[in-house]
Design a protein around this nucleic acid. Structure first.
Lengths: 228, 228
DNA sequence: GTCTATATTAGGATAGAC
DNA sequence: GTCTATCCTAATATAGAC
């Protein structure tokens, strides 16, 4: 038997399965998703899922990594860059509001998954800091460089905030609070969309308008909060 | 056979089951929770769960209502009151940060549940606006008064924000954006706690300190953002 | 009301033909 | 590599004794 991921594997099929699994897991949650459902939608047999991914657990991990890799690298990259705070905020807001508009269930999925499988955070952060690498990679260099990317981004932000506070051009705020506030304002509306739809009557079109408005207002809102 | 919820039912037992189910569903999610686990922790037999709640589905609904009833009534009450905006913000922040500190999984649970069972929002909003009433209650009066409570809270907020904007004592902001921003800043840190723990190294004690800091800073942060 | 025992189904996983 | 057929466990649910 040829090993999957080896030379003999049909990459198109594997990819298709992964794509479908992604969709199904993300809309139903890992625990709620059914292997049969994935097989059906991918137009193959259940057995083939196991041929390629061995178990539901592993398939779920693969999907989670992929999803994580789509959400987090940008923010670390942006925050770690040498742009001004104002520009960073603008870019993060634009990126997330765009990204999550295209993938409605993504935010909720990641939150659920991590609440129920906190052990996946390690894989998550790997995928996050090094989006290109899907395969596990145990060498020390790789691990260190990934960790560096993450730590450095926070470090850069921290230094920047301190400098601006000393200069008196921004109120003092810890980089932790800064980051959480920014992410909260971007991500929460999507994660809680069903609640908002019901409480505020924000269905489809109205929700899109709501997000469009947000894209304009959020950077101002956030930066004003930090004005000295 | 005596009907559960009737005169013959052992309320203490029913309550104990519900308490345990609450804990289990909230930490494992509905799909991930096991009836056996609930029975064990409640010190009774699986069969008894079905005696009282008929099915896992119904038990899950009961738990969800209970959880929802603990999260949302306060904000509607506060926002619907005639307090000043500043005082409302202060109270909402204090309430949620306290509440969610005591029930770590609550935020994640509600978000997951609603992403996977959007149909539960109706029940949710009932429980929300009328916390005392656990039993379904079909009479028109009840429904209308509950709806009124919800709509009125948003209405009051809306009028208040417009008035303050006209008076020039607050920047203009829609009540929808106001509400979402406030909830996001309060709830998101708890829902995404596993991520923060890993990314920022906020474990237990550090997380508590983080939240304590937040309780002091968040109202200022939020209100500054709305300063004209 | 609470238990033991059992029915029933569902769903993940494997064997083996092609 | 992909399928059919089947296994096996886990989990919900019910019957019936006490």
């Amino acid at each position: 038997m040829t090993k999957p991921s080896g030379e003999g594997a049909d990459l198109a099929t594997e990819q298709r399965i992964l794509d479908v699994a992604h969709a199904v897991f993300i809309r139903a949650g890992t625990a709620g998703a059914r292997m049969q459902e994935i097989a059906d939608e991918a137009g193959v047999n259940k057995a083939l899922l196991h041929y390629y991914f061995r178990s539901k657990e592993r398939l779920a991990e693969a999907v989670f990594k992929r999803a994580a890799a789509r959400v987090f690298p940008t923010i670390l990259q942006v925050l770690g860059s040498d742009l001004e705070i104002e520009e960073k905020v603008e870019r993060v807001v634009t990126h997330y509001l765009h990204q999550l508009s295209e993938a409605p269930y993504l935010a909720g999925y990641v939150i659920c998954e991590l609440n129920q499988h906190p052990e996946r955070i390690t894989q998550y952060l790997r995928a996050v800091a090094m989006p290109g690498r899907d395969q596990p990679d145990e060498d020390a260099h790789g691990d260190r460089s990934r960790k560096q990317t993450r730590v450095r981004a926070l470090d850069v932000l921290d230094k920047q905030l301190r400098a601006r506070a000393r200069a008196g051009t921004l109120r003092a705020i810890s980089h932790e609070q800064f980051l959480v506030n920014l992410l909260a304002l971007c991500i929460f509306p999507f994660a809680s969309r069903p609640i908002l739809a019901a409480m505020l009557g924000l269905e489809d079109a109205a929700f899109r308008r709501f997000i469009a408005e947000r894209r304009k207002e959020l950077p101002t809102f956030f930066l004003r909060a930090l004005q000295p």
